[in-house]
């Protein structure tokens, strides 16, 4: 038996919106400690990873570990039937064939219940190692979304250069080229404002990435004020959006290399 309650449906809506473009179907692994999801896009170049800890839910019960395969488009459609402030409960019995999702209004005078069919999803899982990144950029997630949007008007790829001075995003295309530099601020305090950027760096590092994936990652911006971009030579770039006090979404993207 699985039962998880979130006080606000908006959080679950944002989580599913952040990954549904990249992944159409995914396995949600429920265990005593919380929920995990790992899924790759069709081309296996981007990996989405979600972790929600049990203590972030207002109620959480998982009697035995269980994997639920869910079509994210269907999940998203059902979540659109919830008001943002509704309490949401998800529930599945052992060996269930569907996931029960119910919404309760703040006044507790309206309760709706939906069932989404579960599916067997055969996916390749990867073992993501803990890595010592050479550079970590911490910046406003809104700023990140804006840069991605701006760069897409010119090119299809973006180069991220992290140095002690800051982080530079650049692109080029048939129409021309452009770059945006965010200077490093030593401390991110209120004086600097929430839009400031920090770059923790051991060694300068540069990667080129396909912008279309970053546009998908930027859909996680409503979940978190900040995003961290973690770079290391010869490995996927990791983008992390923290989900307030309960976990995170991480996206790993393989860099473009010259053939």
């Amino acid at each position: 038996m699985i039962e998880a309650v979130l006080p606000q449906a908006s959080l679950l809506k944002k989580i599913i919106e952040a990954i549904k473009e990249l992944v159409s179907e995914a396995n949600f692994d429920f265990s005593e400690t919380g929920i995990r999801l790992q899924a790759m896009d069709k081309s296996h170049i981007a990996l989405s990873f979600l972790h929600l800890r049990n203590d972030g839910f207002s109620e959480y019960r998982c009697d035995r570990s269980q994997t639920l395969g869910i079509n994210l488009e269907s999940f998203s459609k059902v979540l659109k039937c919830a008001a943002n402030d509704d309490q949401v409960q998800i529930k599945a019995t052992d060996k269930a064939e569907s996931l029960s999702i119910s919404f309760e209004s703040t006044a507790k005078d309206r309760v709706s219940e939906f069932n989404v069919k579960l599916m067997d999803i055969d996916i390749d899982s990867v073992d993501v190692p803990d890595m010592d990144y050479q550079a970590t950029v911490n910046m406003s997630s809104q700023e990140f979304a804006r840069i991605v949007r701006d760069m897409m008007t010119i090119g299809e790829a973006i180069t991220i250069d992290a140095t002690k001075q800051g982080v530079k995003f650049s692109t080029s295309g048939d129409a021309g080229e452009g770059n945006i530099l965010l200077r490093h601020r030593k401390t991110i305090d209120e004086e600097d404002g929430p839009s400031s950027t920090s770059v923790e760096i051991n060694e300068p590092v540069s990667h080129s990435l396909a912008l279309k994936f970053l546009a998908n990652f930027a859909k996680a911006a409503p979940l978190a004020d900040r995003v961290s971009i973690n770079l290391i030579e010869d490995a996927p770039v990791m983008f992390e959006f923290k989900i307030s006090d309960m976990g995170h979404i991480r996206f790993y993207l393989a860099p473009q290399i010259e053939e």
Partner: peptide, 14 residues
């Protein structure tokens, strides 16, 4: 020409 290796080429398969 630019190309990308798949994620599994960086991280091992489970």
């Amino acid at each position: 020409r630019n190309c990308q290796r798949q994620i599994v080429e960086y991280f091992g398969e489970v």
